[in-house]
Amino acid sequence: MKVVISGYYGFGNAGDELILDAIITQIRSKEPGLNITVLSVQPEKTSSFYKVRSINRWNPFKSFWAIYRSDILISGGGGLFQDMTGSPSLYYYLLTILTAKLLRKKVFIYAVGINELKLINRFFTAFTLKLCDRITVRENYSFDMLVRWGVSQAKMDVTADPVLHREVPYVNAKRPQPKIAFVLRPPRTEVAASAGMFSKLCDSLSQRISAKIIFIPFHIEKDLGFTLSVMNSMRSTARLVQWNKPNDLYNIFSEIDMVVSQRLHGLILASLYRIPLVGISDDSKLERYLRELGQKNIAISAETNPYSLLAVIADVWEWRDEFIKNVSNILPSLQLRSKMTAEIFGNEINPAAKLK
């Protein structure tokens, strides 16, 4: 059985690399003999990390040939179907799906999140997704949106983000000086004001609860510059931690006591380790995930007062035992939903596998 995986892979974004690692682990657990090819912008690195075949996603001839020789295309996971960062990336994923369908291949949408789209983009996305054989989405919001777009409920399932399938040991360390990790991303505007706000927040946290501040850039190319500008504006000392392979992040987060994140998978890793967390973003996917955890997202702007954020973070830290109890109750159901995606995928490919 030959599988091609299409997604935002090889760009150095920790969240997407964690997703790819999870997808490969999940589908191999169901079908160990799968022949997997990943479309990546850095195929050599992807092959080395995940022990799969990988080809350059920008090479249309190799991509076409890989899909032609495959049995099924996996598109996902993550937020592929969005136009906030522009329409070209959206149409790349849609065209990849349409290529597979023109070649009469099965297409499985793997635990994606769906965002509101511009009208014309919504039309083409709905048209393309209606052609897919099975669609799994990571929350009810995405399911409801696709239903409104006219996609059949019969071919859809609500699961959860693939990274949530991972079982990690819970260690409730009682360190005298807690480690608070910040996962930041550059704002769309007012970069200097935002950097100043975060530097004041980190300095205040360091003083108020004697915290060690750690910065973890998830998307090195995009996040590192802004993260360094925050660190350089701080009066107190802070530590920068960089990852190489996606699995490095599990080791990093196992040593953290609290997470303040502007990226979704910073929050997901924190919840896996039952670490108190605070989401700070205007991105709806963070808000949707935090709602599932029973937590609130904090939307920020250039006018946000760092001391109001400090009060929220300090409150979460003070009530951390209650948070840990709450997440421990909710997490098993999310993990079960995450594992369902591989079960559904296995059921989808079994008829094709029997024909081989």
Rank of each mutant, 00 (worst) to 15 (best):
M1N: 03
A14F: 08
D16G: 04
E17G: 05
L18Q: 08
L18S: 09
I19G: 14
A22M: 07
T25A: 13
Q26K: 03
I27G: 05
R28H: 07
R28F: 04
G33N: 09
L39S: 11
Q42L: 07
P43N: 09
T46V: 01
Y50H: 13
K51A: 12
R53A: 09
R53W: 06
S54Q: 12
S54H: 10
I55T: 13
N56T: 05
Y68E: 10
I72L: 15
S75M: 09
G77Q: 06
G78I: 00
G79Q: 11
Q82R: 03
S87K: 13
Y93Q: 03
T96R: 06
L98C: 05
K105Y: 08
K105R: 15
F108M: 09
Y110R: 09
V112E: 11
V112C: 09
N115K: 13
K118T: 00
L119N: 09
R122T: 10
F127Y: 15
T128S: 12
L131N: 05
C132E: 08
C132P: 03
R134N: 11
R134V: 12
I135K: 02
R138Y: 08
N140E: 15
R148G: 02
R148W: 06
W149L: 02
H165K: 14
R166M: 11
E167P: 00
N172E: 10
P176R: 11
Q177M: 09
P178M: 01
A181Q: 01
V183G: 05
V183C: 12
R188K: 14
A192S: 13
F198M: 13
S199F: 13
L201Q: 04
Q207N: 06
R208Q: 10
I214E: 04
F215G: 02
P217V: 10
F218M: 15
H219G: 00
I220M: 04
D223I: 10
D223L: 04
G225K: 10
G225C: 01
F226S: 10
T227L: 08
T227E: 10
L228H: 12
M234G: 02
M234L: 03
S236H: 15
S236T: 14
T237Q: 15
T237Y: 11
L240V: 04
V241K: 01
N247R: 15
D248L: 07
D248N: 12
N251Y: 02
V259R: 10
V260Q: 03
L264Q: 08
L272R: 07
R274Q: 07
I275P: 02
P276F: 06
P276S: 05
G279L: 07
E287W: 05
R288M: 10
L290N: 06
L290S: 01
R291L: 14
G294H: 03
Q295K: 15
K296V: 00
N297A: 05
I298T: 11
A302Y: 15
E303G: 04
S308W: 03
L309G: 07
L309S: 07
A311M: 07
I313Y: 03
W319I: 10
R320C: 00
I324L: 00
P332I: 07
Q335C: 05
Q335K: 13
K339M: 09
K339Q: 07
M340A: 13
E343T: 00
I344F: 09
K354F: 06
L355G: 01
